[in-house]
Amino acid sequence: MTTFDERERAFENQFAHDQEMQFRITARRNRLLGEWAAARMGLTPEETDAYAKAVVQADFEEAGDEDVIRKIVGDLTSAGIDIDEPTVRSALEEQAVIARRQFMEQK
């Protein structure tokens, strides 16, 4: 194996590792956002856990964050909570920072 092949393999491995870490951070962020929304809806701990998992699953509907934001806004509105999309986007950004911090602390 040449040095070039070794470097190429190292870059591929690093890329795969980075993608996996980003996936985990995004999933954690979505879970935290689900917990944030559940607290506003006054859900029980069991309901909060199930709802947070549903938010994580909602992210697989389409690329990007729009599916998660749409779910949270829709669910909060259905629960009678006055909320707008910018508020949810702001909470999403806050939860992303927390998720990244938690992930880095684990290492």
Rank of each mutant, 00 (worst) to 15 (best):
T3M: 13
T3I: 08
T3P: 03
D5M: 13
E6L: 07
E6V: 05
R7Y: 02
R9L: 05
R9V: 03
R9P: 00
F11M: 15
F11K: 15
F11Y: 12
N13M: 07
Q19S: 10
E20G: 06
M21I: 13
F23R: 15
F23E: 12
I25Y: 01
R28A: 06
R28S: 09
R29M: 05
N30W: 04
L32I: 07
L33Y: 02
L33Q: 06
E35A: 09
W36I: 03
A39S: 10
A39W: 04
R40N: 04
R40H: 09
M41I: 00
L43Q: 07
L43M: 13
T44W: 08
P45S: 05
E47W: 05
D49Q: 15
A50F: 09
K53I: 02
A54Q: 13
Q57N: 12
A58K: 11
A58T: 04
D59Q: 13
D59P: 03
E61I: 09
E62C: 07
G64Q: 06
D65G: 10
D67I: 00
V68Y: 00
I69W: 03
I69V: 14
R70Y: 03
R70C: 04
V73M: 02
G74M: 04
G74S: 00
D75Y: 01
L76R: 01
T77N: 04
G80H: 00
G80N: 02
I81A: 00
I81S: 00
D82I: 06
E85I: 05
P86F: 01
P86K: 01
T87Y: 00
V88R: 02
S90K: 13
E93A: 15
E93G: 06
E94Q: 15
E94C: 10
E94P: 09
Q95G: 03
R101L: 11
R101Q: 14
Q102E: 15
Q102L: 09
Q102M: 12
M104S: 13
M104D: 15
E105A: 07
E105L: 14
Q106N: 07
K107W: 12
